[in-house]
Amino acid sequence: MTAPALPDLRTADVVDLTRALCDIPSVSGEEGPLADAIEAALAGLPHLEVLRDGDAVVARTQLGRERRAVVAGHIDTVPVAGNLPSELRTVDGEEVLWGRGSVDMLGGVAVALHLAARLTAPAWDVTWVFYDNEEVEAERNGLGRLSRNHPQWLDADFAVLGEPSNGGIEGGCNGTLRVSVTTAGRAAHSARAWRGVNAIHLAAPILTRLAEYQPRSVEVDGLVYREGLSAVGISGGIAGNVVPDSCEVLVNYRFAPASSLAEAEAHVREVLAGYDVTVVDGAAGARPGLDAPGVGDFIAAVGRVTGGGPAPKYGWTDVARFAALGVPAVNFGPGDPSLAHADDEHCPTDQIRDCASALEAWLTEGAP
């Protein structure tokens, strides 16, 4: 079977390149063929050093510039849902690329590959990172693996993650914490319910506290992050004629990057005081990083193309991994994040081209 290949990165239109990426299925855990194609396409570019760890591919310039930027994106997608091969369609009078991965986030990957080939002498040294397994459990994340195995590959003064942001800058990200809250009752036959204690009924005050909770809006470095504390699951009971003796409420807290993971846990325990609370998982957020040297030029370059300014990122993204390495990072990529993972996933082609133009303007401004 012939291995898939990408068009020549030096001459391909960035939208055509996005289509080519989408049409090589790369569901999490099955990114090998796409990683092979990316590595092969980059290997022929003499201005780049190409490295690989598993299905993560890294390419970098070594020009001796005073500053280094990382431009990163994940190459995996969620499972296909009848939305491949990709197509160009018209939606509300606008040309869009329709298909799995067009938003999350092969449009951003295409922008990075397009520029990696074109920018042979940028003003910054640039490390281009294409990694696997972002859409699955954190321990499999390719960027996390790179940070453990080769942290020096990610050394930089600033990072841009090509997550979909509608072509605008989204600084940092909220943190996330999931906890399990349990109640204990006493089982009984439901025909003699008075002999038992219903654990699901005991969970009602938990739900009331969450329903009445007023989430905070927290300003961090000039951006306002909205928090949220929500019940996202509830389970209990073993049969239709048994009073349940246990109940579990799963709660998710999205917290502003001004708080640490420990502070977020303490807040949740305070809200749910009196109940058995167990942490299931969590990840700290990332501050915006908009005051890092050179970032003002990035904001200006994007603003000239899109006309917009920075906004907060409410969801958690891998910018937090860069923040943990001491590298300020922002989200910037084509596509509406609300369409990520949707069966009708599609991205305006103008956004793909605009993101490429803005990044190119920033990385070449002041170049020798």
Rank of each mutant, 00 (worst) to 15 (best):
A40D: 10
D132W: 04
N149R: 14
D53I: 07
R60W: 08
D132L: 12
E139A: 15
V57G: 15
D76Y: 02
V126C: 13
E39C: 15
P79R: 04
E49K: 07
L42K: 05
V103P: 05
H114Y: 06
G142A: 10
E139M: 15
L146V: 07
E49R: 10
M105A: 09
L48W: 05
E39I: 01
V96F: 11
P46D: 08
A117D: 00
L119Y: 08
S102Y: 04
S147N: 10
G108P: 06
R145Y: 13
V78K: 02
V111E: 11
Y131P: 12
S86Q: 01
V129D: 06
V91P: 07
R67G: 08
V50Y: 13
R148E: 14
A121N: 11
N141Y: 12
A121H: 13
L42P: 02
G73D: 00
V91H: 12
A43W: 03
E87T: 00
A59G: 02
L63K: 01
E137L: 12
N83H: 07
N133S: 13
R60P: 03
V136Q: 15
G54N: 04
V96L: 09
P46N: 04
D55V: 09
N141E: 10
A69N: 01
G99D: 06
E135H: 10
P46T: 03
E139N: 11
V111L: 12
V71Y: 03
V58Q: 06
Y131E: 14
A72S: 08
D132Y: 13
L143H: 00
G144E: 11
G108S: 07
E66D: 04
E87D: 08
H150G: 13
V111K: 14
A72K: 03
R68P: 07
A116M: 05
N83R: 02
G144I: 13
T90L: 14
T127M: 11
G99I: 09
V91K: 09
N83M: 08
D104Y: 05
G108T: 04
A123C: 12
Y131T: 04
